[in-house]
C-alpha cells in the first residue's frame, strides 16, 4: 500500500479527537480502515491527516440499555456478531453483519465506520434505517442525536459535520411479534450487494400489522420501501404480500454498474423484498 503522505494522530480521548478533526477540514477519521484504506491505497483520497479513534474506549462495546441496544461506533463487525445484546435485542443487525465482507475484515471493520462511510451499497445502513436507529454524534459542542432517516444525505455523505464523530447507535428493541430477515444478492461471497433488503415484519393473527423495509444499493443513500410498507399493513400472507412487494422499487433511483443496470436492480428489489418479507414473517 503506497498512499500519499498524511499526518497521523491517535488522540487519547473523544474530546481530543473531535478537536483534531475540527482543526483541519481535510482530516479524516480512521476507524477499522475497511473503506478508508482501499481509498488511500488507490490514491482516490488525499486526506491531510488521519485521526485514529481505534483506541478510544468511549466508542467501544455493545450495551443492552433496556429499551434499546447501544452499539459503540468502534465495535467491530465480529463483536457485533457475537454480542448477546444484538442477538436478543436487534437480531436483524446480526443477520446483516454476517454478510459483511469476510471474517478477516469483520475483525477490523467497525459498525460505526460502516455507517459514517454512508455507502448505500454497504449492508448496515439499510438495516439501521429500517430499524429507525438513532445515531449519536459527539463534537466539541456536545452530543447530537440524529435519526437514521436524517443521517444519510447523499452518496458517501452523512449529516456528520466536520469535527463531529459518530459515537454509537441506538437501536430500539422491537416489541412482540416481530420477525426479521436480511436478503443480500451478490455474485461472490465477498462482493457488495447488488441489491439488499432488510426486513422487519410484525405479525398478528396471520396478518402483517407493520413492516419496515430498508433497501441496500437502490439509490444514492439507503432507502425505505415506503410504498410496500404501507401496502403490507393489514395484509394476510399469500398473494397480497407479493402484490405489495411489487411496489418495492417505487421511488428508488438505483445505480448502473458492471454488475447490474437499473431496471434489473428494480426487478431484484421487488423479488428480494418479497422473499425477505416472507422469511421475516416466518413463511419461507
Amino acid at each position: 500500500m503506497i498512499p500519499a503522505q498524511f499526518d497521523y494522530e491517535r488522540p487519547a480521548s473523544l474530546a481530543e479527537a473531535c478537536q483534531a478533526l475540527a482543526e483541519d477540514d481535510e482530516a479524516k477519521v480512521l476507524a477499522g480502515g475497511q473503506s478508508l484504506l482501499p481509498l488511500l491505497r488507490l490514491r482516490l483520497a488525499y486526506p491531510t491527516k488521519l485521526v485514529d479513534v481505534g483506541r478510544l474506549d468511549e466508542l467501544k462495546g455493545v450495551h443492552d440499555r433496556g429499551d434499546h441496544v447501544f452499539i459503540g461506533a468502534m465495535a467491530t463487525h465480529d463483536e457485533v456478531l457475537r454480542a448477546p445484546a444484538v442477538a436478543s435485542g436487534c437480531p436483524l443487525v446480526a443477520m446483516a453483519t454476517a454478510h459483511v465482507a469476510d471474517p478477516a475484515i469483520r475483525h477490523r471493520g467497525t459498525f460505526g465506520g460502516s455507517l459514517a462511510h454512508a455507502d448505500p451499497a454497504g449492508d448496515l445502513p439499510a438495516v439501521v434505517l429500517a430499524l429507525d436507529g438513532v445515531l449519536v454524534a459527539r463534537s466539541a459542542q456536545g452530543e447530537r442525536e440524529i435519526p437514521a432517516a436524517d443521517f444519510f444525505v447523499d452518496y458517501l455523505e452523512s449529516s456528520l459535520a466536520q469535527g463531529e464523530i459518530l459515537a454509537g447507535v441506538r437501536i430500539p428493541k422491537p416489541g412482540e411479534g416481530w420477525g426479521f430477515h436480511y436478503e443480500k444478492f451478490h455474485r461472490t461471497a465477498q462482493a457488495w450487494a447488488i441489491v439488499g433488503v432488510a426486513a422487519a415484519v410484525r405479525r398478528s393473527n396471520g396478518a402483517i400489522t407493520e413492516a419496515r423495509l430498508g433497501l441496500t444499493n437502490m439509490g444514492a443513500t439507503p432507502l425505505r420501501a415506503h410504498a410496500t410498507e404501507a401496502a403490507l399493513r393489514g395484509v394476510e400472507l399469500g398473494d397480497a404480500v407479493r402484490q405489495a412487494c411489487e411496489q418495492a422499487a417505487d421511488g428508488t433511483s438505483p445505480p448502473s454498474d458492471l454488475h447490474a443496470q437499473p431496471d434489473y436492480r428494480r426487478h431484484l428489489a421487488r423479488v428480494l423484498t418479497h422473499r425477505a418479507v416472507r422469511t421475516a414473517a416466518g413463511s419461507p
Binding site: D102, R187, T188, A189, Q190, W192, L258
Partner: peptide, 26 residues
C-alpha cells in the same frame, strides 16, 4: 464470474477486484 471489460474509449473498467470478480472457496 470473470470478464475484463473495456469501454468504447478503451478504458479498462475492471481494475480492481470489486469489479473483476474472482470466486473464492465460499
Amino acid at each position: 464470474f470473470e470478464e475484463a471489460v473495456y469501454d468504447a474509449e478503451g478504458n479498462l473498467l475492471t481494475t480492481t477486484m470489486a469489479d473483476y470478480l474472482l470466486p473464492s472457496a465460499a
